[in-house]
Amino acid sequence: RWRWAERGPEGTFSQCVRYLAFLWNLLFLLLGLLALATGVWGLLAKGSLAGERFVPLGSDPMLLFVLAGLGASAVSLAGCLGALRSSPCLLRFFVGAVLAFAGLEVLGGLLLLAARHRLRDALRDALLLCLLRYQDEPDLRFLVDEVQRSLRCCGLGSYRDWEANPYFNCSAPGAQACSVPASCCLDPWQNGTVANALCAAGALRLGDVVAGTVVYVGGCVAQLSAWLRGQAGAIAAGAAVLVLVEAIGALMALKMLGDITTRE
């Protein structure tokens, strides 16, 4: 009786940890499946999988959702089944995968910290790629438009960087020649209610002073760099919360592994 009374609370606590670990991993399994479904839907909607138009699959941003969803779903499923069936093999796989993810995140953070002085150049290269492929990739177009609208900027260093785009270049055919995207416009609305896609028509033919009355003439690299510096605290806090969440899941799995080893 004395031994049963001594071990009873431990058994109850172990059961609570087991069910909490199951629910914890079930939540992340659902989130992983949601990310996976979003990625697959994005690829199908753009015809990347259906072959409606040629888009290199490896360069599609929606592929990141697919890979992240697959990884999170597989690890969370192992955690769910390991907690439900008290499987040492699945629990060890779960702990190993979580530790690997946490290690990669910490390594990535350290690399970013070490290469922070080169971050501006990397950011400029990424924005240049977005600028050149603006008309070819809907995801990149959406990203560029959001950045230019939110930060009230245009191009990399100035609005004239859009001359490098084959569709906006002054020698290009079509209505967009010598223009910049509508997201560069100071007032992208017609009569205040209807979006005007040609509000920046001919902006590259204008001088800087006149163009400044129609579009934002300052570039986005400096503005985006300043914004990222301002968000450094929030980014670090988010990374810390993510590592804490992973640590809680790993500790619960280790607790269950310890209980299984004790029973054996």
Rank of each mutant, 00 (worst) to 15 (best):
W2Q: 10
F13Y: 01
S14H: 03
Q15I: 04
C16H: 00
V17H: 00
R18H: 07
L23K: 02
L23C: 14
L31V: 09
G32I: 07
L33E: 04
G39W: 10
G39D: 11
G39C: 06
A45I: 08
K46R: 12
S48T: 14
F65C: 14
F65M: 07
A68D: 02
G71T: 08
G71E: 00
A72D: 03
S73I: 02
S73H: 01
C80G: 08
C80Y: 05
C80K: 08
G82M: 05
G82A: 06
A83N: 04
R85C: 10
S86M: 14
S87F: 01
P88T: 14
L90I: 05
F93W: 05
F94M: 08
A97Q: 07
F101I: 08
G103T: 05
E105P: 03
L107R: 00
G108N: 03
G109T: 00
L110R: 10
L110C: 14
L110Q: 10
L113N: 14
A122C: 02
R124A: 09
C130Y: 09
L132C: 06
L132N: 09
L132T: 15
L132H: 13
R133W: 08
R133T: 11
D139A: 15
F142T: 15
F142I: 11
V144L: 10
D145L: 10
S150N: 14
L156D: 10
L156N: 12
S158Q: 06
S158D: 15
R160I: 05
R160Y: 04
D161L: 06
D161E: 07
A164D: 08
P166C: 03
P166T: 11
Y167M: 14
C170Q: 08
S171M: 07
P173A: 13
C178W: 01
S179H: 06
P181K: 03
P181M: 00
S183E: 12
S183P: 13
C185N: 08
D187T: 02
P188G: 00
P188V: 02
G192K: 03
T193E: 12
N196G: 09
A197G: 02
L198P: 10
C199W: 02
C199T: 03
A200E: 05
A201F: 07
G202T: 03
L206H: 06
D208K: 13
T213G: 13
V215Q: 08
G218W: 05
G219T: 01
C220R: 10
G230K: 05
A234D: 07
G238I: 07
V243R: 03
G249K: 06
L251A: 15
M252F: 11
K255T: 14
M256S: 11
I260E: 12
T262R: 15
T262Y: 11
E264Y: 15
